[in-house]
Design a protein around this nucleic acid. Structure first.
Lengths: 356, 356
DNA sequence: CTGAAAGCGCTTACAG
DNA sequence: CTGAAAGCGCTTACAG
């Protein structure tokens, strides 16, 4: 190895140009020969484990810097070490919601020199493969409550000792790290605002039955109404799937028989659907009916009227999820098991406020 | 190895449960002992290279299926084989534009059992690392013309023989695979439509100076105008950065001194910005001024008025880019170097049409 | 057409 | 605190 190193005529960060002007990557052996220690020692300082004399540690780092050495993850992974990559499962990336999440995730991964392998399909075999074949150090899994995770996959991940943090409620309550948002609190605030407007006949467009997020939002909404001893005459519930089209349909089906003062949709997309229905029927928003949503997606503030909604900090969720999982990796622990991020009421015009 | 295999009491796809009920991954050795051939042969049939007798090939596949064997990519990568992962660089994933691209990319990668490592920062070192350290088999690079690629990185990728396909114009024209969209054609169609409306005083809100996409759109627009021998009195150009805010500003700065019949923005976001400016000033769209965009982003059809724009098939661009790069990997060639996907005029109401 | 063997670049007991 | 050596699971000349 040493000879290989000594024949080199030019070093550029991360690779070596030899006399044939042929590039070859710099390996741990190059570093070892440069600093005069064995590669075992070099490995130890890189992974910051095992005790190494400070003096030698310094020399090793010096050699690493000089050569621009970067460990080969494939080799590390194969020999039982780390891959410096985390798998991120994000169903349905095509909405801005997930795009923001991904941005947050990548921002922090990039800073820590981690790679992200992104999965958007709940494919048991593919997820299995990542866990079993030591391709990733950790998982960040978005649970939207719509596509349940395969139990075997979860078990396999756990058995491998691979940390996972969920975005959204974890499928099994115990000992799971999770980043959640305050669905209950946000919907509760919306209820208080409804009471201020004096709405009495209300339609709640929910997500799928049994969907956790939707249920929490409904729960918080009712709680808020009760707290204010609101005089509610009707609170109807329609079920959608969080998508725009289902919001349109929910409005279509319920508006025929009822006259509502306001509709609160469990997602901005469904709120948009309801608005489009109204637009198509000449029903004025908010004059004839107020419409509000949940999420504060990109487009919500640009609708006409701008949508009153509950804002959730999507990009932050992503950043915090990644920070959490990286912390677990580094210190074998996290400061918390579950973190609930606050939501806030975003008042615009679709509720009837004349806010600028 | 054989003994290891024969002591197993339960096989579940992809891993083996031994008598201690401890899971261990099934390796090429397991497959080899099951089918009675050497692992060299197993490797050959998996990678479909080297000549293997059809009969033995069949037996090998049978064993693979039976054990649910999946090769360990880290090991393949380390020994000079394939990683079955492709790096995707997508600046600015937070817009729906890139989310759609990513969806297309992932759809096809997933079907072919490829993983995607996603990068959103133009980080020289990180990209270098992926190329040099054999972490990926291929690259898909989005060139938005705003963040130029580091030349050294491109050279290193090429020297490693790693195929890359660009989304958007490649930085170096020759011998680069690229998926492009017909900017010129789309803008040309918009020009024809403008002529039908009889617009004579026009503002074009461009992207940054020197931006290829923007320039092509302007070029096509002018071409379309000329073709129709349009009687244009003013064609002013303002420069933005494709983002909403810059569209707002462009309108703000130009509307003071000029009265336009129509503004054509090089992106929907800038068109939205211009619409918001008009909304804030009580200028009616399209009655006082028509506004049209380019992209057909998610929200465009839900604006009020719905935005007339040029549609580009973002998800298809992603799918085709991935298919192309995977084809190159598999057959060492692609049917084309450059593919230009068609764009189409999406007529809605912001141009003044009374289309439903 | 097939196999034995070397080697990819690391990590990690095991010694000392 | 440090090193020699084995091993992770593949691929690929090299023989035959």
């Amino acid at each position: 190895m040493l000879d290989k190193y000594t024949t080199l005529i030019k070093i550029v960060s991360g690779y070596i140009m030899n006399q044939n002007n042929f590039e070859s990557r710099v390996t741990i052996d190059h570093v070892a020969s440069l600093c005069g220690f064995s590669k075992a020692t070099v490995s130890r300082v890189i992974n910051r484990e095992g005790s190494v004399k400070p003096a030698t540690e310094a020399k090793v780092w010096e050699a690493i810097k000089k050569l621009g050495y970067m460990p080969n993850n494939a080799a590390s992974a194969l020999s039982g070490g780390k891959t410096r990559t985390v798998a991120v499962y994000l169903p349905d990336v095509k909405t801005e919601y997930y795009a923001a999440l991904l941005t947050g995730l990548e921002d922090v991964a990039e800073k820590k020199f981690f790679n992200i392998i992104i999965k958007t399909k709940n494919n048991k075999k593919a997820l299995y493969d990542l866990a079993i074949n030591n391709k990733v150090d950790a998982f960040v899994l978005r649970n939207n409550g719509l596509q349940p995770f395969d139990h075997d996959v979860l078990v396999a991940i756990k058995r491998q000792g691979i940390p996972v943090v969920f975005i959204g409620k974890p499928p099994t309550e115990s000992d799971s790290h999770a980043i959640l948002i305050d669905n209950v609190g946000g919907a509760r605030l919306m209820a208080h605002h409804y009471v201020q407007h004096g709405f009495k006949n209300i339609l709640f467009i929910a997500g799928p039955k049994d969907n956790i997020d939707s249920n929490d939002r409904l729960y918080g909404f009712k709680m808020g109404l009760n707290e204010m001893s609101a005089d509610i005459q009707t609170l109807d519930i329609a079920h959608g799937d969080f998508q725009r089209e289902s919001g349109y349909q929910a409005a279509q089906e319920t508006f025929e028989n009822h006259k509502y003062d306001a509709v609160f949709a469990a997602s901005d997309h469904m709120a948009l659907g309801a608005m489009l229905y109204c637009r198509s029927k000449g029903i004025r928003v908010p004059e004839d009916v107020a419409i509000t949503g949940f999420d504060d997606t990109f487009f919500s503030e640009f609708l006409d009227p701008p949508l009153t909604t509950v804002r959730q900090p999507m990009q932050d969720i992503g950043s915090i999820a990644m920070e959490t999982v990286l912390n677990i990796l580094e210190h074998n622990s996290s400061r918390f098991q579950k973190m609930i991020l606050p939501t806030q009421l975003q008042i615009r015009k679709s509720c009837g406020c004349t806010h600028t």
